[in-house]
Design a protein around this nucleic acid. Structure first.
Length: 203
DNA sequence: AATATCCCCAACCGCGCTGCT
DNA sequence: TAGCAGCGCGGTTGGGGATAT
């Protein structure tokens, strides 16, 4: 039986207060990240280290962008999801200022539905049965989102269709390489290092 | 105006991975 | 090599605001 990450009794749960946020920010500014297990006690917080880490990474980090996703960010998420699947941390690593949690939430609440409305299976990015392929370019017209997607919106099925029997990521990456000639800023060095994020602060 | 339902997103949970002893 | 500790990841939950009835 695995030990719990911390002694949960006498620990706060749920939403963070401003005072708690400030304590965590002050502590990390003064001492930097790392050793999350010891941070709560050192910072005077009644939280487990895991909770502190999540709060910092997903909400308090100064380099977070927050706010609505731009069209090119949506586009990139769809492309990377087609390539990587639910590897949210890898996908978020290609989106400066975005967190894995944010990307995951955005996918589940917006992009999944968007692809479904376009007749694309969001799980494998292949065409569904309902919408004939020749209608895909018009598919955005029944898009329920308000992003106003135009024809520039990613059509992952176009390049996936011709490689549908190939599940190897490396081969998929080469497909994406071809496809992303129109996206010169798409860095396909698929490591977990965050753009603009000091790797020395990571383990 | 009151109530019900939907939707978003912050936070939690459990597991896997890695490094250390 | 095995066991442990700590961190990171992905799936899931639930609170609360927005919208519909």
């Amino acid at each position: 039986m695995r030990k719990p990450c911390c002694d949960k009794q006498d620990k706060n749960k749920g939403a963070w207060s401003k005072q708690e946020d400030q304590k965590l920010i002050d502590y990390i500014r003064a001492h930097g990240e790392g050793c999350w297990r010891s941070i709560p006690q050192a910072a005077g917080l009644l939280r487990c280290g895991k909770s502190c880490r999540l709060r910092w990474i997903n909400y308090l980090r100064p380099d977070l962008k927050r706010g609505n996703f731009a069209e090119d960010e949506e586009d990139l998420i769809i492309k990377l999801h087609a390539l990587l699947g639910n590897r949210w941390s890898l996908i978020a690593g290609r989106l400066p200022g975005r967190t894995d949690n944010e990307v995951k939430n955005y996918w589940n609440s917006h992009l999944r539905r968007k692809l479904i409305n376009m007749g694309i299976d969001p799980n494998n990015h292949r065409l569904g049965r309902r919408t004939p392929s020749h209608q895909q370019h018009k598919g955005v017209s029944n898009n329920s989102t308000s992003s106003g997607s135009k024809s520039q919106v990613c059509q992952p099925q176009q390049w996936l269709r011709s490689h549908r029997d190939n599940d190897q990521v490396s081969d998929m990456a080469s497909c994406l390489d071809d496809h992303t000639s129109t996206l010169p800023d798409l860095n396909l060095d698929l490591t977990t290092e965050r753009v603009g994020w000091d790797p020395s602060t990571k383990r």
